[in-house]
């Protein structure tokens, strides 16, 4: 069977790792919740709760914050164990610009790489050239220019940066409103202004033009960074994102299995307040959280990325 598969892919009619299958996997994740997990047991709880994918990590962002020091790609052994424990897609994070960590993650067979500001950046000027890889990448952004630069580098999916590990949704809201608001502005802009707009926000002209024509980003756009309750998840969906990443918000709460299921249901039924009220009942303690506005600039993760 293994040989047959290779033969099939070499017959010239069949292509792997093209832009359609990379962006397409993100399209299949829409309307869903991607959960940070640090053990195979967590991964099983996430899958059981209805997660569409898990992010395999050694520490959730709240612990990365508390721990300090340099945060790197997770141990490949842990990532393999998590891959073996679930049937849903497994994502993992590499440092910004660390293309060798990305090569290792691709070799492990992860389904999606998050080139993430939550880890300590490895390059202070450049991101990974994501076109070089057969598996898709997701990258964070705070505004439309940043989103389009990442898509230009080959990102197949975008997420807001928010402020990871805080349990404070305010930065995710700010970043989602910024991206979606800029797209609305772009739609009203006469075509002769697009080149200057592209120059000023540092985005590739062709992608600015495409975004204007589509009225949305050319790739799927999730929220991330501070989502801790079903109401937070539904808020981001009503603002207009395609789905949610939840990091520390689930496994730093009192009852992760219950909260995970509630956030999944709130992401699907984001427009139904009766259902939102029901799933928000009796979830136990949410993660404690830190107000994002109380963080000194040196502790803000969202400022990482260029």
């Amino acid at each position: 069977m293994e040989n047959q598969k290779t033969e099939l892919k070499d017959n010239g009619l069949t292509q792997v790792g093209g832009i359609t299958v990379k962006r397409g996997l993100a399209q299949m994740l829409k309307g869903g919740v991607i959960m940070d997990v640090v053990t195979p047991e967590h991964a099983t709880i996430a899958e059981e709760a209805g997660a569409v994918a898990v992010m395999a990590l050694e520490r959730v962002p709240a612990d990365i914050r508390a721990h300090g020091g340099v945060a790197r790609m997770s141990d490949p052994g842990l990532i393999r164990e998590i891959i073996a424990s679930v049937s849903i897609p497994v994502m993992a994070k590499c440092r910004i610009g660390h293309f060798v960590e990305a090569q290792i993650l691709e070799a492990l067979g992860v389904d999606f790489i998050d080139e993430s500001e939550v880890l300590t950046p490895a390059d202070e000027a450049h991101h990974v050239n994501k076109h070089d890889f057969k598996i898709p990448f997701v990258c964070g952004c705070r505004n439309l220019g940043e989103a389009l630069r990442r898509i230009g580098e080959g990102a197949a999916m975008i997420r807001t940066k928010g402020e990871a590990g805080t349990g404070d949704v305010v930065e995710a809201v700010r970043h989602a409103r910024s991206v979606l608001g800029e797209i609305k502005r772009l739609q009203l802009m006469p075509n002769e202004e697009l080149m200057t707009y592209a120059k000023n926000c540092g985005a590739p002209y062709e992608l600015v033009k495409e975004t204007k024509e589509l009225g949305r980003l050319p790739v799927v756009n999730f929220a991330a960074g501070g989502i801790a309750t079903p109401a937070d998840a539904a808020l981001m969906m009503q603002i207009g994102v395609d789905g949610n990443f939840v990091g520390s918000g689930i496994f730093k709460s009192g009852d992760p299995a219950l909260r995970a299921k509630a956030i999944v249901e709130a992401t699907t039924h984001f427009n139904d307040p009766q259902i939102l009220a029901k799933v928000s009942e009796n979830l136990g303690e949410p993660m404690v959280g830190i107000s994002a506005s109380s963080l000194p600039e040196s502790e803000q993760l969202a400022t990482r990325g260029w």
Partner: peptide
């Protein structure tokens, strides 16, 4: 048969 062709790296397009 689920995920029958492998992981994402094996996802493909064909005629």
């Amino acid at each position: 048969k689920r995920n029958a062709f492998g992981r994402q790296v094996d996802s493909f397009e064909t005629d």
